Simulated assay, not measured.
Amino acid sequence: MPNIRKLDPTTSPMHHLGAELRRYREAAGLTQDQLGGKVYCTGSLIGQYETAKKIPTRRFTMQLDDTLGTGGALLRLLEMALCFQIPLGIKEYADLEDEASQKFVFEPTIVNGLLQTKDYARAVLGVLHKDRLEERLALRMSRQRTLERKRPLLLWAVFGEAALRQVVGGPEVMRNQLAHLLRFRDDKWVNIQVLPYTAGAHVGLTGAFTLFRFERGPDLAYSETYQAGLLTANSPDVTDLTLRYAHLQAAALSVRDSADLIARVMEERYGEQP
């Protein structure tokens, strides 16, 4: 069924791009399926571009321009849109995570949501706001299905050592959380590295960030403020964070040594819990 979600072009540059793509398609007298057939993709994918659920690549946008005879208007809109940071809600973030083939995350002080136990996640989500806590908790835990699908999300996570030592929810919750991380020790789809205190100054001191990669579509970078999550496909920004991530991986302990440190902290700091 065609995706005809109404867009407000003033909401964001990416929404404006989607609205213009729909306008050009309809002016050409084409359905989403018909346009998809001309550019060798599904009508559903055209619908996702038109509703700003996905970001097209530059090459694909050039194909759309050629097919629709826009004189390069869509590519110009894409170039402008990629320079902006796009506000992202938790539902949109979950959809993005579900579409991604690879995710690279750096968290200096907490365990990433995809690897959190339910009790740890409840403690994190309930620090300031307890309204709709169980609903928000259920959404966070449902996101972990990306690690269980037929072809799982390839997840690479670098945590600061503080994520192991900051007591969230109490010693028992922490022990169970670290034990949960150790379950991924031999998982080829989930790789966990710890950036130890001994690494000293590093390129992630300014805070957490995430990189997404897709089978089709540009790489995306995501970061958060206290007020909002911000997504960008701007190539210089993505390249900068990709370089930073490579440096963080190099400074962190290996996957095997990280697991050894997690196990040691679990025993020494949290001991045997009832």
Rank of each mutant, 00 (worst) to 15 (best):
G18K: 00
E224H: 04
T242A: 15
R22P: 00
T146V: 15
T10W: 07
R5L: 15
V168Q: 02
L220K: 05
D95N: 14
L139T: 09
Y222A: 07
L230G: 01
T10F: 08
S223Q: 11
H202S: 01
L155P: 01
S142N: 07
Q177P: 01
E272Y: 12
G271L: 00
D66A: 15
P108L: 13
R264E: 12
G36R: 14
L128F: 15
Q102Y: 15
S142A: 12
L253T: 05
Y120L: 06
T206E: 09
K103A: 08
R136G: 09
H16F: 12
L153T: 03
L182C: 01
A163Q: 10
G229D: 00
T225C: 00
D260A: 01
G89T: 13
T11D: 11
A162W: 08
V265N: 05
Q48G: 13
P152C: 03
L139P: 07
G204Y: 01
E135W: 14
E267L: 11
A228V: 05
G72Q: 08
V173I: 06
L220A: 11
Q177C: 03
L178M: 05
Q34W: 13
V173R: 01
A208L: 04
M62L: 14
R175I: 04
M1F: 14
E172V: 03
R151E: 15
I262K: 00
R122C: 08
N176I: 07
V265D: 03
D33V: 12
L125E: 12
L68Q: 08
I110F: 14
L75H: 00
V158G: 00
L64G: 04
N191E: 12
E215V: 13
V255K: 06
L220P: 04
S223F: 15
Y245R: 03
S12G: 06
A259R: 04
I55R: 10
L153N: 02
I46A: 12
R149E: 01
T225G: 02
Q102H: 15
V158S: 02
P56C: 11
K54E: 14
D219Q: 07
I90K: 15
R143P: 04
S44R: 15
L181V: 03
R175N: 04
F84M: 06
F212H: 06
L68H: 07
L205R: 13
T11L: 13
Y40R: 13
D33H: 10
A199R: 03
V194H: 03
K54W: 09
A233Q: 12
D131F: 14
L155M: 00
L137A: 05
E148F: 08
Q249S: 08
V105H: 09
R122M: 10
Y226T: 10
T10D: 10
T210P: 06
L154G: 05
T51V: 07
I192Y: 01
L205H: 13
